[in-house]
Every structure is written in C-alpha cells, then in structure tokens.
Design a protein around this nucleic acid. Structure first.
Length: 429
RNA sequence: GGAGAGAUGGCUGAGUGGUCGAAAGCGGCCGCCUGCUAAGCGGUUGUGGGGGUGUUAAGCUCCCACCCCGGGUUCGAAUCCCGGUCUCUCCGCCA
C-alpha cells in the first residue's frame, strides 16, 4: 500500500511511477478525491462528537430536571447527525482503503524501464552449461526410469499438476531442503522458522496477495482460512501490528514450507514435468530492515540465494525485472534462474528458482510492521525483502538434468551427499 | 467436542455508567544527587486520524477515535446487553 500522504503531496511523482509499471495513473486522482471526501466527513464528525462530549459532560453536572431533559434532546439530535455522517464516513474509508489496496508499489529509480518481460536484463551468468556426450533427457524421463518420480499416480490422487516423489527422489528433495536451510542458518545467519501453511485473510492482505490475486489461492471456506502460496506470507506477518526495536533489525528468517497455488492463470503453460505444480516445497528467506539498509540487504539476500546455486555447482543467471515485469508488490526484483539442459522446447531452459525483491514499506504498511528508529521517536514502517533460497521442484529438476549420466543414473551434488547418507548417485532398481 | 473463567497502556494490575486515555507499581527516558556502582529524589513516558499555525520543515496548538473485535442500549460506555475471536482450567478425543 502506498502512503496516502505521498499520493496527496506528490501526485505527479506517483503517477509517473504507476505509468512505469503499466498501471493506470488515473488511480491517483481517484484516490485523492476519495481522500478529500473522507477528510471532510472526518472533520465534520469529529467536531460534532466534540460538541456532544462537552454537552454530555454538562448534563452530568446539571441539577434542574427540565434543563437536563432539554439538553438530552439536543444531544440526541447531534447524536443522530453523527450517526448519519458516520455511515458515510465508514463507506468513504472503505472505498479509499479498497482503492489503495489495489494500487501497485512504485519502482525504485534504478529499475530499468521496460514494457514487459522481454525487456528484463540479464545481470550475470555464472557457470558453463555442461557439454553432454549423449542426448540429455528431460527430468520426467529420468525420474520415471529411476522410479523416483511418478506423475501418473500423482494425477490419480489429486488431478493434473500433482506428482509423487519416491525413494531416492523423495530423499533428494528432503536432502536439498535440509542442505539449504543449514546453509542459510549456519553460514548466512538466518533464524529458522516453521510457520503455519494455513493463514487468515489479513495475512494475505498484508503481503499483497489479496485482494487482487485471490484466484491463485486455495481457500477453506468452512473455517475461512487460506493455504499459503509461499512461506513469505506467514513469515512476513510474524511481526504484523508490532513496533519493533531498531536494535532488533535487520531480522532475518528462513523458512521451509509447502506452497499451494491454483495456477489458474497459467493453464496450459509448463504442463510437462514438475516445473509448475499446485503444491511444491520451498525454502524462503525473509528480511525486515530499516529503509536505509534495505537496498544493501536485498543484495546480500540475492548473494545468499546465489550461494545455494554455487554450492550445488550448477549454471545460473541473475535477471533483473524491468518496470513492466515487476510484481504488484515489488519496488525492485531480481530472479535467479538455474540451467536445466533438457527442459523447454529446444535444448534447455532457464528455470526460475528464486525471486528476490524489496517491497520497500509497501507490505509493512499493509501489515502494520513498524520500528522505532530511536527510543521515544515516532514509529516508522520497516522495509521487507524476500527471496527463495531456493524453490524445490525446480532445483530438483536442475539436479536431475544437469547431473544425469549416460547410463540413466544421476550423480548427487557433493554438497548434498552428507544429507543423503553419503549416497553418491541414484541408480535404477 | 462439552463445562467454566478471563481479555485494560512495554509489563504487573486497579477501575462496574459521567470529573478515566485510564490509579498504583515495575520498566524506559531526562535531570538532580552521589568517589564508582547501587540506592534515593524530581520530571517524563501509548497508537492512529483530523483541524489550525508554520516554508507541503522542525515545532507549537486544538479536536476525535482506540481499555480484544463487531454490533446494541444511553445525552454519555473500559464499565450494561448481544454476537465473534483468542487465552486459560477441567472433561472427552487424538498424531
């Protein structure tokens, strides 16, 4: 959510930002209009309440019965006026809030301008795709042949976009999760969190998934709860409606969680293999920090995510999103992509395994996460940052495809072997 | 799932219709005092919104809302009534 004061005081600046991300700048004028109406009603209601408060206090002191009754009638009339203004005021507040919740974040000045994903910028590419002396197979063939991936039975259980990992396949995924968690906890200084995978609506409003993107979420209507699409949601909301001490910042959390997405908008896309499922696992890093440090904290979070790619010894690249491809909540965003040599239509594909972004105070304002810069100072909103470290099925895909051997076996990356009980390769049978 | 108790400021905890944004204590901050520390003394200490003044600053000032949330009664609600959420205790069930 944008600061209404910023919109009010620098409407042209906000419009320019909205234009860059492809949003309608007219939203600014709409919000300003609603805000003016809201403030008029607010002023009116508050002065009437002041009158009633003063009048009511007086009634308490009056002794003359007739005088009291006269005063009561007067106050009753004011009360009626207040009630009717309050109806309008509540509506105005709701309208304004509603509109504000649907306005995207503004891009940082450094974000390259572009209309859509075609104008994203590859920042760097690390590692060389391996030269195969045989035709590399896609992961769904490798997995099926090794008996570690069963897409048919996943579909039998739960429908399309579900799969089952078995034996060493399941073990490998579990090993990757443990490996990543330990790396971030021990080497990068994150605190591990195990959050609920089911949350209340306000958490999703806090992170910006609602009200706009509800159709990508699974929901339990019975208890009015939602399945999380990422651990970002519960972890960011950990400190919702809190005022943190400046000395507590930055807060660095890493969480493993299952993620659930309906993927209705991507029907027909990525149908082959396990690249895009309704349920997947992810290790997610979340930071809360001061505005002054957020840009540097984003860079270090990206470095932490990259460290996973490096440790797994697979080619990867970092892509910066242009203004037109930023998400609703991001002010700046970088994707990490692992190379998968046999995915895609023609000989390999970069798989998005992490999306690292700074949300400035956009989420913090929605979730009410503040900090006190100095003892006694006015609270300010923190900046939130997050990124995967990394997303699981895709990392698994990359391992299977990059580390496959001519005989159909898959070598386990060295860094993961301790988490696989020392197993060095997965073989058929 | 059944029965009961409760939810007040950073914390503990008073307050049952007006003078309560809320006693007291603790903690925090500022100052005084004191070889140092501790103790002591004085002051101060919630959040949000709106108006005025001011350079769309700092500051000053006035008002409103908030005692879990949402309704209701009343001239007036932390206080009374209804609904909800959460916590605790006991019973049942259970990985």
């Amino acid at each position: 959510m944008l600061d209404i004061r910023l919109i009010r005081e620098q409407p042209d600046f906000v419009k320019e930002g909205l234009r860059k991300v492809g949003a309608d700048p007219a939203l600014v004028d709409q919000v300003i209009e609603l805000d003016a109406r809201r403030r008029t009603l607010e002023t009116e209601a508050s002065s009437l309440r002041a009158q009633r408060n003063a009048g009511s206090k007086e009634i308490g002191r009056l002794k003359d019965e007739a005088e009291r009754e006269a005063r009561k009638a007067e106050m009753r009339a004011i009360g009626d006026r207040i009630a009717s203004i309050e109806v309008d005021l509540k509506a105005a507040e709701a309208d304004q809030q509603n509109l504000l919740l649907n306005i995207p974040n503004l891009p940082l000045p450094e974000v390259p301008y572009g209309a859509d994903e075609r104008e994203n910028v590859v920042i760097k590419t690390v590692g060389e795709p391996r030269a195969f002396d045989f035709e590399p197979k896609p992961h769904w063939e490798i997995g099926a042949a090794l008996g570690i991936l069963d897409i048919e039975r996943g579909t039998k259980l739960s429908g399309s976009r579900f799969y089952v990992l078995k034996g060493q396949g399941a073990a490998l995924q579990r090993a990757l999760i443990s490996f990543m968690l330990d790396l971030h906890i021990r080497k990068h200084g994150y605190t591990e969190v195990y959050p609920p995978a089911v949350v209340k609506e306000h958490c999703l409003v806090g992170t910006g998934n609602l009200p706009k993107f509800g159709d990508n979420l699974y929901r339990d209507i019975e208890d009015d709860l939602w399945l999380v699409p990422t651990a970002e949601v519960p972890v960011t909301n950990l400190h919702r409606e809190e005022i943190l001490d400046a000395s507590d910042l930055p807060i660095k959390y890493v969480a493993y969680s299952p993620c659930f997405r309906r993927e209705r908008m991507s029907a027909g896309r990525d149908v082959r293999g396990i690249k895009r499922g309704h349920q997947f696992d992810k290790v997610e890093m979340v930071k809360l920090c001061t505005p002054e440090t957020s840009r540097a904290e984003l860079d270090s979070l990206i470095a932490d995510a990259e460290d996973v790619c490096r440790a797994l010894e697979m080619p990867y690249r970092v892509v910066q999103m242009c203004t037109g491809d930023l998400s609703f909540v991001s002010a700046i965003k970088f994707d990490l992509e692992l190379w998968a040599p046999a995915c895609g239509d023609e000989g390999g594909e970069w798989l998005e395994v992490s999306s690292c972004a700074c949300f400035t105070d956009f989420q913090a304002r929605r979730a009410g996460i503040r900090y006190r810069p100095e003892p006694g100072a006015r609270p300010e909103f923190v900046h939130t940052i997050n990124g995967s470290g990394l997303a699981l099925p895709r990392t698994l895909i990359a391992v299977l495809e990059n580390y496959q051997n001519a005989d159909g076996s898959v070598t386990i990356p060295e860094a993961v072997r301790p988490y696989m009980g020392g197993v060095e390769r997965i073989c058929a049978g």
